[in-house]
């Protein structure tokens, strides 16, 4: 299966490069490792994240596409569905093993991440405090999200934090 899955990954990567999705630039982390993608996502204009550049790391397991990819934010972000720490885990229902479909494309996954920035899902939160704030005090939420953008998402994107995921915090996490 691993060999077959490389063919699929190569095709997806070529498609993404040929016509990149709105506001995203996509590449592999290194030519040697097709299973690790680095994505730079521009904060959507109609969202609290406008103006920011967010690093997203996509890791494709050996059983991909039969097992879902893992997607994490390498850039700190203030969002109900992303852990507010250097690991940047995302809660997306289509990435849960029981919901994942092998025919789902990474393009669709990335689109889903992007729309999560436009429209957070406070009912399925990873950060319940931020979710509460999003529901009850939208201005405060917008202010905090923008503060995070100013502090973390205004410089050139670094993927170090995600590379150090689970270990000691890297420079990108600061």
């Amino acid at each position: 299966m691993a060999q077959q899955s490389l063919k699929r990954i190569a095709k997806e990567l070529a498609d993404c490069k040929a016509s990149p999705p709105t506001g995203m630039s996509i590449d592999v982390a290194s030519e040697a490792d097709m299973r690790r993608w680095h994505v730079v996502l521009e904060g959507p204009a109609n969202s609290a994240y406008a103006g920011g550049k967010f690093g997203i790391v996509v890791v494709l397991p050996a059983e991909y596409p039969f097992k879902p990819p893992t997607v994490t934010f390498a850039t700190r972000i203030y969002h109900p569905n992303v852990t507010n720490d250097s690991s940047g885990n995302i809660c997306l229902s289509l990435l849960k093993p029981e919901n994942w479909k092998p025919a789902t494309r990474l393009l669709a996954v990335l689109e889903a991440v992007r729309s999560l920035l436009v429209e957070p899902m406070p009912d399925d939160p990873l950060e319940s405090r931020i979710a509460d704030e999003y529901r009850s005090d939208r201005n405060e939420y917008n202010k905090n999200a923008n503060q995070y953008v100013q502090r973390y998402a205004m410089r050139s994107v670094s993927f170090d934090a995600a590379a150090n995921e689970g270990g000691k915090k890297g420079s990108g996490g600061h």
Binding site: E63, F66, P97, E98, K101, P102, A103, T104, R105, A108
Partner: peptide, 18 residues
């Protein structure tokens, strides 16, 4: 994989997205 790893049987859906 659904049967052996996830123990799913009654509600395995078509592999297509959505």
């Amino acid at each position: 994989q659904k049967i052996a790893e996830e123990g799913e049987a009654a509600r395995i859906q078509c592999p297509a997205d959505g």
